[in-house]
């Protein structure tokens, strides 16, 4: 990390600086998200051709795949925040981790639901214990664990550090779980099952898929900013309420 980026990250540790930045960018980001979604959806429905093998159901991919990307991306970001909490005690890192977890769980849930809706016409069942779906399900459970631990511990500092440790333990274990689930599924996979990653992704699908991915990313960043802004205000309000209670 260069001095400059670490310097600006350090400046963000001041909630007032974060607030100013967030207030300035949330509006434009929301508009940008909306435009990207409009562009991406237009591409998904009118530009991308139906797949020669999967037909029109390929339209589901434009939600399913970006949601899967976000499920992983959000967890990676949470792990970075966890390091920030534990090593540098960066006060905003803990806020970011807390606010990112429900959003990540949402994307993971969406990935599971659309995967199931795609699996029914393609595989003939709502749920196939295929390696990818199973890994995403485990990831969803880990998200739920992080959120549940966060809510269970009342003291904010203690909760922040416990959640950070759990997040890192999950991050270390996710590749191992992924590997073992892949290995396990090669034992059980019936050969006739159609693979969702498919033999080819046609070039004209990649463009809209990419735009949908960026749209999901922008939506995430906007919502994260909004949620962090709310969390900062909540903490300040909590302090003021505490002071008022002590003064009485």
């Amino acid at each position: 990390m260069t001095d400059q980026t670490s310097g600006s990250l350090l400046r963000l540790a001041n909630p007032a600086v974060f607030n100013r930045l967030a207030d300035r960018v949330i509006g434009p980001f929301a508009v940008l998200t909306l435009l990207l979604f409009a562009w991406g959806l237009y591409g998904a429905f009118f530009v991308a051709p139906p797949d020669y093998q999967q037909g029109e159901t390929i339209r589901i991919m434009f939600i399913h795949v970006p949601a899967a990307w976000m499920a992983m991306f959000v967890y990676a970001g949470m792990s970075a925040s966890a390091l920030g909490t534990l090593i540098w005690r960066h006060p905003m890192a803990d806020v970011a981790l807390k606010c990112a977890a429900p959003l990540g769980a949402g994307f993971t849930l969406l990935c599971l639901v659309t995967g199931s809706l795609w699996g029914k016409p393609m595989w003939g069942t709502w749920w196939e214990w295929d390696a990818r779906m199973t890994s995403v399900l485990v990831m969803f459970l880990i998200y739920i664990g992080v959120i549940a631990l966060q809510q269970a511990i009342e003291e904010p500092n203690r909760a922040a550090r416990a959640v950070a440790i759990l997040t890192l333990v999950g991050a270390v274990n996710l590749p191992i779980i992924k590997f073992s689930v892949d290995w396990w599924s090669t034992l059980h996979q019936p050969a006739s099952v159609f693979r969702i990653d498919g033999p080819t992704i046609h070039g004209s699908m990649l463009g809209p898929l990419f735009i949908m991915g960026i749209a999901f990313l922008m939506l995430y960043i906007t919502l994260l900013m909004l949620a962090m802004r709310a969390e900062v205000m909540n903490r300040r309000a909590e302090r003021l309420e505490l002071l008022a209670a002590e003064a009485e």
């Binding site: 037909g55 159901t57 339209r59 949601a67 659309t114 029914k120």
Partner: peptide, 12 residues
């Protein structure tokens, strides 16, 4: 497949 596609977008 319209139902499945519509279902997916409704879920989203």
């Amino acid at each position: 497949y319209v139902g499945f596609i519509a279902g997916s977008y409704a879920a989203a």
